[in-house]
């Protein structure tokens, strides 16, 4: 079964004959996709656009945040890819880059920010603290990984990862957006 995308589209294309009130006659998404080329390519267009202009939420927590800042600076220049527009408000962002250790005290804030972000949204966990707690995994006050708090789409390993690795993580997210039907995406695959 194909994975559903986040983007909802009014299901009026290719309505079947019969009583619309009869819900058993409504088509599933796959049947719609097989009938309506328009549906498929608009969705793909939105995903293509989103992939080239992800707006990250400015959410640096610890050391990885500094490498994230370096990624936006002149040498590594994330704006070549369209991602330099860090939004301060979660309402305007669509990707949350968790860069750093999440502590128990910070956990409610992380959850709240995630819920404040509007759909569609994604999460990139940068650095080993965000992936699994990192070197602090057995501490009394550290959450063992961002995926204990929010659903993570891309993991970027490193302590801290080099800016090139963070850019690679963003491009990996773009590849994931371009291939929503795959469970796991390797970036250079077509």
């Amino acid at each position: 079964m194909a994975l559903k995308t986040n983007i909802r589209f009014p299901q009026r294309v290719g309505m079947p004959e019969g009583d619309p009130a009869n819900t058993r006659d409504l088509l599933t998404q796959e049947e719609l996709e097989s009938r309506g080329i328009l549906f498929t390519s608009l969705d793909k267009l939105f995903r293509w656009g989103a992939g080239w202009s992800l707006w990250p939420l400015q959410f640096g927590l610890a050391c990885c945040a500094i490498e994230m800042i370096c990624t936006t600076q002149t040498r590594f220049d994330m704006s070549r890819f369209g991602y330099e527009v860090f939004r301060n408000s979660p309402r305007q962002a669509d990707v949350m880059i968790v860069a750093g250790t999440i502590t128990e005290k910070m956990r409610p804030a992380v959850e709240l920010l995630y819920h404040q972000m509007p759909e569609p949204k994604w999460v990139i966990a940068v650095g080993s603290c965000a992936i699994s707690g990192g070197p602090f995994v057995d501490s009394y006050s550290v959450v063992a990984g961002a995926d204990k708090v929010v659903p993570v789409d891309v993991y970027v390993p490193g302590c801290p990862p080099r800016p090139e690795a963070i850019i690679d993580g963003m491009l990996q997210l773009k590849a994931k957006l371009a291939n929503p039907e795959r469970k796991q995406v390797v970036r250079d695959d077509k």
Binding site: L61, A62, G100, T101, T103, K105, M106, A109, P135, F136, D138, S139, Y140, S141, V142
Partner: peptide, 9 residues
């Protein structure tokens, strides 16, 4: 908010 308990670790 970033207290990782380094001294205890």
């Amino acid at each position: 908010y970033l207290h990782r308990g380094i001294e205890k670790l």
